[in-house]
Computed example of a mutant assay.
Amino acid sequence: MSLLNNSPLIIETAKVVGVNDGYATVECVSKSACGSCGSAEHCGNSAIAKAFPTRTHQLKVKLTDSVELGDQIELGLVAKNMLQSALLVYLLPLIMLIAGAGIGKWLSQQNMAGDLLIALSAFSGLLLGFLSVRLMARYFIHHSRYRPRMLSRQS
């Protein structure tokens, strides 16, 4: 847990929905940031956030304390890892889209082909970016430093 002691954390509360062999299955509710400020009544973004239902996510977390079903626990995730994940998910497909369009442009100049080649290569780059993100996510899911950790049990 030394990694948690030296790094800023994103802390979230989760409800225990299952316990098995030193691990707990916990459920977190995704909340919109909109609606918590003083202008929420008059803001269009807040109205849009209210229109979409909250989503729940289930995670498997290694226990550091004894818990029972229904307990609330605090989870910690290293903020740097969350930022890296967000950059990977959002920027890699965008970069691959631009690279694909650039390759398509270069190929169209070489072969006198039209804009269809540019569009197809841009789409191919985007698809390759999404596939790369999916493969990297499978890699990251098996490394403990990218998993949330139980910090404490709330009373």
Rank of each mutant, 00 (worst) to 15 (best):
Asp65Trp: 08
Thr56Lys: 00
Lys80Pro: 07
Leu59Gly: 02
Ile48Asp: 06
Ser46Gly: 15
Gly76Phe: 11
Val61Leu: 01
Thr54Arg: 05
Gln58Asn: 02
His57Ser: 04
Lys62Ala: 12
Leu59His: 01
Lys80Glu: 14
Ile73Met: 07
Thr64Ile: 10
Leu63Lys: 09
Glu74Ser: 14
Thr56Met: 00
Ser66Lys: 13
Thr54Val: 09
Val67Tyr: 05
Arg55His: 14
His57Met: 11
Gly70Ala: 01
Lys60Met: 01
Asn45Leu: 15
Asn45Gln: 14
Arg55Met: 13
Arg55Phe: 14
Phe52Tyr: 15
Ala51Gln: 03
Val78Met: 04
Leu69Arg: 00
Ser66Asp: 13
Asp65Pro: 05
Ala47His: 15
Asp65His: 15
Ser66Ala: 12
Leu59Ile: 06
Ile48Cys: 11
Ala47Met: 12
Thr64Asp: 06
Leu59Glu: 05
Gln72Thr: 11
Ala49Val: 09
Glu68His: 12
Lys60Ala: 01
Leu69Asn: 01
Glu74Tyr: 15
Leu59Ala: 01
Gln58Cys: 01
His57Asp: 04
His57Ala: 03
Thr54Ser: 12
Val67Thr: 07
Ser46Leu: 05
Val61Phe: 05
Leu69Ile: 00
Ile48Gln: 08
Leu69Pro: 00
Ser46Asp: 13
Val61Ile: 09
Leu63Phe: 07
Thr54Pro: 04
Gly76Glu: 09
Thr54Glu: 13
Ala49Trp: 04
Asp65Arg: 08
Thr54Leu: 03
Lys80Thr: 13
His57Pro: 00
Leu63Tyr: 10
Leu63Asp: 03
Asn45Lys: 10
Ala49Gln: 06
Arg55Ala: 14
His57Ile: 09
